[in-house]
Write a protein that binds this DNA or RNA. Structure first.
Lengths: 99, 99
DNA sequence: TTGAGATATCGAGAAAAACCGATATATCTT
DNA sequence: AAGATATATCGGTTTTTCTCGATATCTCAA
């Protein structure tokens, strides 16, 4: 877990917003319903909601993934992203005890 | 507590290092001993240890303070900085539950 | 196998952050 | 009042981040 990379990933309003949306995918991405929420939410859904371009959203999701804050699964033409709660828990503990 | 400002403040190696040093002032800033550790550590001590210029260290400490991660007390010609553990505890909880 | 749709990558311009040296301000000492 | 010391602020250069449009890649469907 690279703490500096994590903090950099969290240092952006749009990325924080995405992470927050992903806490409740069913609520925040109703358009995802027909494809299911098992694997997370696909890039297009996040793009549509964010107001950012597709390329920016894709890059942001990649950076969140590099930081370990989300995981992704490719299924067909879609890439699904979801939160990696283990990293959040570890980060919380890290701040409580190490930083 | 402005989470974005906090994460930005934490997105820098040198600032993370300073915060870490301030966890154990007696160990990391022996030069501070003759002035006491009650109020924290003065800018010059941190400057001396950091390898950065005085102006940069001053600015970094100010940014850490704006984020609420440290507090400062001016006493005579010195400004002492110390960690604000309440913010770290709150941040840890925030990550655990809200973000 | 061709076209359409979803995502990733690339190149670029604008904005912000990382530093620095010089200088200002504030305090202490004499 | 004048120097010395500690810290803060200012202006500038370099590096990084933000964000976009264009394009490439990958997969599905016809």
């Amino acid at each position: 877990m690279d703490q500096l990379e994590i903090f950099k990933a969290l240092s952006n309003k749009a990325r924080l917003q995405i992470l927050n949306w992903l806490k409740e995918p069913e609520v925040n991405f109703p358009g995802q319903a027909e494809y299911g929420f098992e694997n997370g939410v696909c890039v297009g859904q996040i793009h549509a909601k964010s107001g950012l371009t597709q390329s920016t959203v894709s890059e942001y999701l990649t950076s969140l993934q590099r930081a370990g804050l989300v995981t992704s699964v490719r299924t067909g033409q879609w890439t699904y992203y979801r939160r990696n709660e283990e990293t959040f828990a570890a980060l919380s503990k890290l701040i409580e005890t190490e930083i």
